[in-house]
């Protein structure tokens, strides 16, 4: 079994070397003429307006949070699905309860407008 993961390791080493190799060859081949105006931050061709940071909305955080919760739910779903043929009908009921409890959470988020983008 570890042999499979050794393959993954070798594969990821080679996959990582593809962009590195490509970028090294490009670095050798391309012209290098930096200039002050060329290297300025791009903002549709205008000068940068205001500071370079923006106050971000809490909404991003809430989406990531709901994602964490549902991600953990799917982690519980996979072993259940794999072992499903060996388990009885009771396993379906148990999983139904599990999902129902989390759907309550999703409904709460929905009704309190936590899922709105605004």
């Amino acid at each position: 079994m570890l042999r499979d993961y050794a393959f993954i390791l070798i594969f990821s080493a080679i996959a990582l070397s593809v962009p590195i190799l490509g970028l090294s060859i490009a670095w050798l081949l391309r012209p290098k003429k930096p200039g002050k105006i060329k290297n300025a931050t791009y903002e549709c061709g205008l000068e940068t307006f205001g500071e370079t940071w923006v106050q971000f909305k809490v909404q991003y955080y809430i989406y990531a949070l709901i994602f964490v919760i549902f991600d953990i739910e799917t982690v519980f779903l996979y072993p259940w699905a794999v072992a499903y043929n060996k388990l009885g009908l009771f396993a379906l009921v148990e999983m139904f309860i599990f999902i129902a409890i989390l759907v309550v959470g999703l409904l709460y988020a929905w009704r309190t407008d936590a899922l709105e983008w605004v």
């Binding site: 060859i25 490009a26 391309r30 290098k32 003429k33 002050k36 290297n39 300025a40 931050t41 370079t52």
Partner: peptide, 12 residues
């Protein structure tokens, strides 16, 4: 074309 384009790195 991608290989020979100049790479403009922003100053900051």
């Amino acid at each position: 074309k991608m290989f020979i384009k100049e790479d403009i790195t922003p100053r900051e």
